[in-house]
Structure formats: structure tokens, C-alpha cells
Amino acid sequence: MILHEVLLSAKLARHFKGTLRLTDLARKLKSEPARLWMLLTTHLLFVIDHSPYTRSEEPLLGNWDIFLNVINIEAQVAVTEERLCSVLYGGEEDDIRRRDFKLTASLYVHVLRPLCWAGLLNEHRTGSGFSRPDFYTKTPLWPVALSLETDRHLQPVTHH
């Protein structure tokens, strides 16, 4: 459903006699993968409203400038949804994990999942059940695709 919405929003596809057809722009961009990725990612992150895919009527507070800059610092090594919620909205990570699952779910649907789908974040699932922590790390595409205010504060990652 989301891919369908992104393709229509980006004017890469249109409906014609009950079918979904590529537009001239889509056919042109088939040979320009970088421009195609930029267009699709821009629409996926900044244009599409992800609210219909949540179980909560409340919108996620914040904006992409804040989200991207916080994730840029926090996901330098690895970060959990609860840690991001703690940094963005305050509160203890354990309290967020136990009581504020709607906030973490909303952050996942509106921010983390689209960033994973765009290839900017990796999601590492560990454990099982509701108590399992999922960790997020930046992909090699992140620093190539994004230039953020917080880049100057990043420390080099130590690899073992």
C-alpha cells in the first residue's frame, strides 16, 4: 500500500483503465538510479503521511530535522527505540519500554521503518516477544546521502 502511495505521490505511476502504469518520468529514471532513489526517499520520508498505518490517533511530535540529527548521533554505534524516545521526549528507557509502547510504535512507523526501507538504517532484531530490544544502526548510505548539523559532533566508530 505504501509503495503504491509513494509511486503515485512521486508521479512515477498513474492509474489507467484499472491498471497501474509507469509514467514517462519513471521510464526516464530507470536509467538514473541515484535520482530515482532521491525522489522515492523524499516522498517516503517527507511527503507520505504514515498516520493511517498506526493504531493511535495522536500524531508524532517532532520534525525530520530533529529526528535525523538525533538519530545521527545516537545510531553512530547502535540505538534502541526506547533510547531514541528517551532522548527525544524525556523519561527513562525502562519506563518507556514498559508503559509507553504507543510512543515507540509511533516512532517506528513514522520514522524508523521508513528510514530502514530507504536503506538509511539497519534494524537488528534480537530476542523474542514484547521485551526484545531492536537495535538500529546507520548504513554506509547514511553519511553519503545526508549532510546534517550534528555531523561535526560525531566521533569515529571503533571497529574490533
Rank of each mutant, 00 (worst) to 15 (best):
H153I: 08
R98I: 09
T104Y: 01
F46N: 09
D65N: 06
E74A: 15
L22F: 09
V77N: 14
L22C: 04
P52A: 01
I71C: 04
S131C: 09
E149I: 01
E82G: 03
D151E: 02
Y108I: 00
F16V: 14
G119Y: 07
A78K: 15
L112D: 01
P33G: 10
T42C: 10
E93V: 12
S56Q: 14
R132G: 15
K138I: 07
K28N: 05
G127T: 13
N63L: 05
H110F: 05
E123W: 05
V6H: 05
G90Q: 11
P114C: 03
L141I: 05
L141H: 13
V87G: 00
E123L: 15
K30G: 08
H124S: 10
A78H: 10
L61A: 09
R132D: 09
N72R: 06
E5L: 10
T19I: 04
L7N: 05
C85Y: 02
G18D: 01
L146Q: 08
L146E: 11
H15T: 13
A145Y: 09
W37Y: 07
P140E: 10
E5F: 01
R55M: 11
R27Y: 00
C116V: 15
E82N: 12
G62Q: 12
F130T: 12
V157M: 01
S106A: 05
L107G: 03
T54C: 03
N69E: 07
N72A: 04
A118I: 08
G119V: 10
V79E: 13
G91V: 06
S86T: 06
V157H: 01
T19P: 00
